[in-house]
Design a protein around this nucleic acid. Structure first.
Length: 332
DNA sequence: CATCCACGGGAAAAACAGGGTC
DNA sequence: GACCCTGTTTTTCCCGTGGATG
């Protein structure tokens, strides 16, 4: 039933981008000067997750590279590589100049090497608000051949840690705002993927509607649900997706997402999360006490607070209230 | 208004990683 | 392989801020 599994993957980039022509041409215009060999404006892409930011950035750079030979591009997911070294390493890696770089190479040298490149360099920093050290943005900003395309869910998360000067400079870059996909847009995206990747008639119109409705405007979620349902149906040897496959896929897709976050936690962080999962809502003091009896060599309160902040970012834990009446609970 | 907590920034210390050397 | 060296990452400690509560 699955004819081409690639089109159901997260990172699949369709040849033809639908529903985001406006945003794509805005970005293309912002980057246009590179065709003439000039330095383009930096760009800022904001909007909720699954609204097509990453997709548009990648597609635009692909097009540009077809037109212009003398340009380097790179795409770094700052969620996966949050620290300076890894980001810079990734950038140099896509230039193919990492041959003699090791962990003890000073950051300044990495930056220096970026400065030396002769062609324009277009850099997509995906999930840019996840970058640990905001100073990195300032340093990248100061490299004249380098143009940043910053992607973030919320502009304020990105700007909050930056100093005034850099904030105002970045605000002057081209900002492109993305909205969540509308229901009918998601339906048409799902239809395309089904047409490319599945046999005819494997996914009914009602099923498309159902997935689109559940995904709440998030294309990534919609495609994960489709992927999971298709796999499920195929495992059973069915020649089309049944409604029950979709109902199974909806929680499965969420679980998959959560598992990805969970895999990246340390044992102590996981212990904190487990305590909250088992005990439900807890006050900080109580949470700490239970965590401490759970592990052999507990970390300090301050460290646990850092963990909690991280868990909140991963959307595994949520908190409510302020001051003494604060409570934490695991996201169901 | 005083007090109690919790929060989170920053600095310093400790643990860690990975290359180079013998 | 044992060891040092360097820079990174994690953890801890200290402390000011500020909301909630009596």
């Amino acid at each position: 039933m699955i004819q081409d599994a690639r089109v159901l993957q997260d990172d699949y980039l369709p040849r033809e981008i639908v529903h985001r022509h406006e945003e794509m041409s805005q970005l293309a215009t912002a980057l246009e000067p590179v065709v003439e060999g000039d330095r383009p404006q930096h760009a800022l892409l904001t909007g909720p997750s699954g609204s097509g930011k990453t997709c548009i950035a990648r597609a635009t750079l692909d097009r540009l590279q077809e037109q212009v030979l003398d340009v380097h591009t790179a795409h770094v997911d700052c969620w996966l590589h949050p620290n300076d070294f890894r980001i810079l390493y990734k950038l140099l890696e896509s230039l193919g100049t990492t041959y003699d770089i090791h962990r003890s190479t000073p950051l300044d040298e990495l930056l220096e090497r970026l400065r030396e490149i002769d062609k324009p360099y277009l850099v997509v920093l995906d999930e840019a608000d996840q970058i640990d050290d905001p100073d990195l943005l300032r340093r990248l900003y100061s490299i004249s051949g380098l143009t940043m395309i910053l992607i973030t869910n919320h502009e304020r998360d990105l700007f909050r840690p930056l100093d005034e000067r850099l904030q105002s400079r970045l605000r002057s870059s081209d900002t492109i705002e993305f909205d969540s996909y509308r229901r009918d847009e998601l339906v048409s995206i799902l239809s395309d993927r089904a047409a490319w990747g599945l046999t005819d008639g494997a996914l009914t119109t009602d099923q498309r509607q159902r997935i689109a409705e559940t995904a709440c405007g998030n294309a990534r979620d919609a495609i994960s649900i489709l992927r999971s349902a298709a796999r499920h149906a195929e495992r059973k040897g069915s020649d089309r997706i049944r409604d029950s496959d979709i109902e199974t896929a909806i929680p499965a897709a969420r679980a998959e997402l959560r598992q990805k976050s969970l895999d990246r936690l340390t044992t102590d962080q996981l212990a904190v999360y487990d305590v909250l999962r088992e005990c439900g809502e807890l006050m900080p003091k109580e949470l700490l006490a239970r965590y401490e009896e759970r592990v052999d060599d507990p970390k300090s309160m301050r460290t646990v607070r850092k963990y909690l902040r991280k868990l909140e970012q991963y959307n595994l834990v949520e908190s409510s209230g302020h001051g003494p009446s604060r409570t934490y609970s695991a996201v169901s």
